[in-house]
Nucleic acid binder design. Structure first.
Lengths: 336, 336
DNA sequence: TTGTAAGCGTTATCAG
DNA sequence: CTGATAACGCTTACAA
């Protein structure tokens, strides 16, 4: 049973395709009775207007792209959830692209999306350390893009971020107040905008507490769990920090694994706090203190921003930047 | 800077659109030199073939849809990850649809996808308790669909599942071997195929151990954490099971919350095992025994099955069913 | 090897 | 209110 097209449907009804088309569009004039007749027959024959054709004709795809580094990640999956809700509300479809932190992939995706497949892009970037001049090129085009969480600071664009500096400052301050003298900062790439901002909060909190900054306490990790474990095992046994501020969730988890293995008691021997969207932080052993980003809300806001753009292309050069607040939740891992 | 089209590009080059088109397609004959010239100019002018147009022409969308109940969920986000990898490998794009366990949404999505937007669908169903005759209607069409994990048993279709019965049997048996006399089965909807299969394993394990099945030990939960907590609080204080077999992750987590609040010691007072894709089960307090489904692999296999279909529509009526194995990992929550 | 022209399924414009 | 027609941007026989 192949899908039928508008022409066949029109024939069955002894009508022109234009009239049939009108029955499916809100605006145009059409006799209510004919419309009813058309819709009834359409239902019977299971007719559905072909989207490719109408999109081509209308030069709109009613689709947006979401580009993220990964999806098996509490923060991003929740953010996508928020994006999805708003997109659906607007009658839009969502294409997913995972860069796996591969900058070249990011470029390829964005480039290939310039071909009419989508009306806009929501993305969390991956190649902050690289040359992203390609972005500047793209930005001159009409395809609207909104960044969320991980952004390119040198690209003038709409964006949704959180108060990373402030929460990092507070988190570090909290560790110090809990008696930590030697706080390590765990980061995946300290050159990335997020890494930089979070690190600045850490640095300033140390300074304000009169604790000298030590370079060896900034631990540059990777995205691979096994590598991080090896690295941290070394750090925890040799440098022996008494506090850990993890800039991303996976580094806190790596710390947990290592401490479990090494018999280091988190909360007592080593206090840990981390950016994390882990719902069940409270159930960990011990309960993990977190800086909780409003991931779902960030997704929603990013999508809303994008649709504002899509729906009013006239002021496509006015960028909006929204900063949302993270929530600090202190648990046993720092209260020990 | 609006994107240019093939006609404009052809004009600049003093060529016909057909020749230009040929430069972008692998097959057709074309002078290597002209091809080079075209590609160079295309790059300079930033030309990209319009996908909507070529898809319309070719009657292919190079896009698949992934329909899942939710995305902020370890199992599904990982499965999507697997699907993504295979799809990308095949040069396909991925549209995401979240039903949020709303059966009507599922129907709407599937129906709307019949209009040429995608070449195939990978889905984990949601409305198992409902009448899914709409599916039978769809199945007569050419759009290939592959189910994974949650399936409709009465719909003849390709599918990827895991050995749910067996792992449930083993999990229950394990609890009994650990000394449990009163094992509760936690389920979201015992009428759903997954709930049924997993329950059967539970029932049979009890029987084989000579323990009489008790209806009150089958706890029908919901998808809402707060409701589940209330319900389980009641169960744990009144019925007082000494073992819990949770058919989905969120029910194990609800149990943890409740036990933490009630001061019930998991592992000692109450042993817990659960289907779960939680990477950090080991880090929970106490470490959670899990039945780990190969979520990523399931996604990959489901996608592979779909592409086999898409690429050879001739045997579109031969359904493949693949069963993968879950892994049981016993930890402190059952070893106490 | 390249060009011409028809057509993919819609919808907007314009005429009736 | 309805119908004819052109156009959206691309691909592919077929012709040259």
């Amino acid at each position: 049973m192949e899908p039928i097209n508008i022409k066949q449907l029109a024939e069955k009804l002894n009508l022109s395709t234009s009239t049939v088309s009108r029955a499916f569009r809100g605006n145009s004039d059409i006799n209510p009775k004919t419309k009813e007749r058309i819709l009834a027959m359409a239902k019977e024959l299971n007719y559905q207007p072909n989207h490719l054709a109408s999109n081509l004709r209308e030069k709109k795809s009613r689709t947006i792209a979401v580009i993220v580094p990964e999806i098996a990640n509490n923060f991003f999956s929740r953010a996508i959830n928020g994006i999805e809700r708003i997109a659906r509300e607007n009658g839009y479809h969502i294409l997913i692209y995972l860069t796996n932190d591969d900058f070249q992939k990011e470029i390829d995706f964005i480039m290939s999306l310039q071909s009419g497949r989508v009306d806009g892009i929501v993305m969390s970037v991956t190649g902050e350390a690289n040359d992203h001049s390609y972005m500047h090129k793209i930005r001159k085009r009409s395809l609207p893009i909104v960044f969320f969480d991980r952004i390119y600071e040198d690209v003038d664009n709409s964006k949704i971020t959180t108060n990373d500096y402030e929460s990092s400052y507070q988190a570090t301050k909290h560790l110090i107040e809990q008696g930590c003298k030697k706080v390590a900062y765990l980061v995946v790439n300290k050159l990335l905008s997020i890494g930089k901002k979070r690190m600045q909060g850490y640095v300033d909190a140390l300074k304000d507490a009169g604790i000298p900054f030590q370079d060896e306490l900034v631990i540059d990790c990777t995205n691979r769990m096994d590598e991080n474990k090896t690295l941290l095992k070394d750090v925890f046994t040799k440098i022996k920090p008494d506090g850990v501020f993890a800039s991303v969730e996976r580094l806190a988890l790596a710390s947990y694994y290592v401490c479990h293995d090494l018999g280091i008691e988190i909360g007592a021997d080593l206090k840990v706090i981390s950016f994390s969207s882990l719902e069940i932080a409270r159930l960990l052993n011990p309960a993990l203190s977190t800086i909780l980003q409003p991931s779902y809300l960030m997704g929603e806001e990013a999508a809303k921003l994008l649709f504002r753009r899509i729906n009013s292309p006239e002021n496509n050069d006015v960028n909006e930047a929204i900063e949302l607040k993270s929530e600090l939740i202190f648990r046993k891992s720092t209260l020990g």
